[in-house]
Simulated scan of single mutants.
Amino acid sequence: MATTEPASAAQDETWFIYRGDGRPHDGLERLPEPPPWRRFDRSGTDRRRDRALSYRPDKNAVKMVNAAVYLRRPLLVTGRPGTGKSTLAYNVAYELGLEPVLYWPITSKSTLEQGLYRYDAIGRLHETSLRQAAAPAADAAAPDIGRFIRLGPLGTALLPRPRPRVLLIDELDKSDIDLPNDLLNVFEEGGFTIPELDRLPEEQPMVHVMTSDERARVPVERGQVRCTAFPIVIITSNGEREFPPAFLRRCIRLMIEPPTPEQLADIVEAHLGRQARERSGDIIQEFLDRQTRGDLATDQLLNAIYLATSGARPPQSDLEELREAILRPLDAAGSG
C-alpha cells in the first residue's frame, strides 16, 4: 500500500533549500527574492535611496537635525543598536538632494589623520626608483605627489563647495579615548593643512589630490583644505562610553528612542509592503514585549517578518523556533 507523506514533511521539503543529506540537488532554483535590504544586484545609488526612503524619523529627530544644520554643528546621535542612527544620515542627504553620504566607520584604531588624508610615501618612493632604473642617465622627475595623497571621508567633506556634504562618523564610542578631542579643532576651524603639500616649492602651489569617494581629483592650494559650506556631520554612538564635556558642548545631541508600534509598522511597510504590515501585528507585539527584557534591533524584526511573509514560509513549528532565535536579545548571554 502506498503511504501518504505527512503535510508537514511535504512543507519541509518545499521550504528547505539546504537539506543536510549530502545529495546534490537544484533547490536554489526555488529560492525567493532576497529581502530588499539584502539585494546586491543594484547600483549603490539605488540601495542608498531605498535605505533613505525606508527611514521614519520622529519629530524630535527632525528638530535636532534642523538645529544642527542651522548652527553648522555636528549632530551626535545616541541610541540602541538598530534604531536607525546611521540611516538618518542617508535620509537627510536624500531629502536635501545632496551628494552621496561620506562614510567613516570608527574602530579602536581610528585616528584623526585617517579621517583627513593618507599619504602613500612608500608608493611614491617606489615609483621614483622605477623611473630611475628605467632611465639611469636621465634626470627623472619625481612622480606627481597628488597621485599619492587621498583625502579621507572627513577631509573630503571639508573641501570647498557651494553645498555641504553629509558626513557619517559611525560609532564614535568605539574610538580611542583621544579621538573626540582630536576632532574639536578641525570642527572649529572647518579645515586642516596637509604638511606634505605645504612644504612644496613656491612654484608648485596647486596640487590635485584624490578623494575618498574616488571621483575626479580635486585641487588643493598650498596644502590648505577649508570648507565654504560646513558639512552636515552626523556622529553616531551606542552609548557605550561618555564623551568629554568640551566635545559635547560643540555638538547638538539627539537621543533616538526605540520606535513606537506605529513607527515599526511604517518601517515594515516601507521595506516589505502593505500586505506584510497587515500580517505582522503579532510579531511586532512580540518584538515590543521582548524589548522590555533586552536590546533588540529593528532589523531583527524585519528578518522575522520576512521569513513569516516571504513566498516560501517555513512550517509553523520551525517558524516559531526561528523567530525565537532571530528575536534573541543582543545583550543575551551566549551565542545560541
Rank of each mutant, 00 (worst) to 15 (best):
H271E: 08
E203N: 10
D331E: 10
I305R: 01
E113C: 05
G239V: 15
G27E: 11
D12V: 01
R313C: 08
Q204L: 00
L75F: 09
A93N: 02
I235N: 00
A312K: 12
P244G: 07
E202W: 01
L327S: 04
R39A: 01
E33D: 14
E189G: 10
L296D: 04
S54N: 10
F148Q: 02
E29N: 14
A270M: 03
E278M: 01
Q285G: 07
F287H: 00
P201V: 10
G27I: 00
E221K: 12
F40A: 00
K63P: 03
G44E: 11
P32G: 06
S108Y: 09
E214G: 15
T260W: 08
T309G: 00
I252W: 09
V218H: 08
M210Y: 14
G22E: 02
T260A: 06
D178A: 10
V77T: 00
A312T: 15
P105M: 04
E262T: 13
S280L: 02
E203A: 07
A89L: 04
D266S: 04
D282F: 12
E269S: 13
R30W: 12
P160Y: 10
L197V: 11
D120R: 04
L158K: 03
A216P: 12
G22S: 01
V233R: 02
E242R: 14
P35C: 03
P162Q: 13
A157G: 11
F187C: 11
A265G: 11
V92M: 03
G273E: 08
I232G: 07
L98S: 06
A308S: 10
A332R: 02
G273W: 03
M64F: 12
D318I: 15
R30K: 15
T87Y: 09
E196S: 06
G79M: 03
A121Q: 13
A89W: 02
F243C: 02
P35T: 12
D318E: 14
S175D: 07
